[in-house]
Design a protein around this nucleic acid. Structure first.
Lengths: 161, 161
DNA sequence: TATTGTTATACTCTATAACTATA
DNA sequence: TATAGTTATAGAGTATAACAATA
């Protein structure tokens, strides 16, 4: 038997769970590499990608990213210092602010997104179209079942991760 | 369209690559939670699980974990300080040492492994047996193709991360 | 009083470069 | 000289608790 995440002592039998975990690690690694290629840490890339559609408030981001608010403050500080995002005061709530991408930030976010996609595609390259579809549908269903926490709140999008 | 990793603005169409990346993030999150349940960081859990079968040398570990040797030194220091592993001098090479689990460490590694497996199983619970098998086989093949770097070296196992 | 976001503090993790002690 | 591992240093990420300003 092999360990949870690190070994493939040949092609010995893997639990379904083990296979999934390893697979996730591989994807994760691609994600880290793709982020670095853009001069970003994976967390920074994550944050930027989250902001592509529209500015988002700190509390919302911290929930989407499963991060404490204070941890997020630091993360935002660092990308703001690099000119990738801006803190925009909220008109309707003096306490709040929303984080918005700068032009540079948007560019970086899109490039990062594209880079990951490209790497994943490369990995999945030889995969049969049938397999691809089946895996996609199975995974999508899992994702849907695992994102039950859709916001009922007006103009906010549902969450993830 | 949604961002690389964070949003599902309903059930809008996801690229195959996007679905995979999100899925990986979800698994990853389970892994982090499972590790924490054992009082470990995910990196520490990773390390301990790597050592379940047998002690491993620093350089080998650093390759398996895709970590710089100096980063590993710190990681090992911290788990050693907690009594979970020991540095065992290598008889055949005065410079080298191998990292071995203590009883406590083994226990923790196994518990961690089991905990992750259980959480993943729970997530995959409702999945049809057919889907499960197909996904498993597709993923396994990807993993095999993506671990070409099998050690030709005698009694060492191939890597992963 | 509750919420939004920040500060203060303390660890863990990571990388780079320089160093030691063997080989 | 090359390799195994460590030390020094610096920055990034995270968590907890205490705090400010606004609601």
């Amino acid at each position: 038997m092999s360990t949870t995440t690190e070994r493939i002592t040949s092609t010995d039998a893997l639990t379904f769970a083990e296979a999934l975990v390893r697979f996730a690690h591989v994807i994760d690694h691609l994600y880290v590499d793709a982020s670095r290629a853009q001069g970003l840490t994976p967390q920074q890339a994550n944050l930027l990608c989250l902001l592509i559609d529209e500015p988002v408030g700190m509390t919302d981001i911290s929930e989407l990213l499963h991060l404490g608010r204070s941890s997020l403050t630091g993360l935002v500080d660092r990308v703001e210092r690099r000119g990738l995002v801006e803190r925009i005061p909220d008109d309707r709530d003096g306490r709040a602010c929303r984080i918005a991408l700068t032009g540079d930030g948007l560019q970086r976010a899109l490039a990062s997104h594209a880079n990951v996609a490209q790497r994943v595609e490369a990995m999945v390259d030889g995969m049969a179209e049938t397999d691809r579809e089946q895996v996609a549908s199975a995974i999508t269903q899992l994702l849907i079942r695992h994102r039950p926490a859709a916001r009922s709140n007006g103009n906010r999008s549902a969450d993830q991760r």
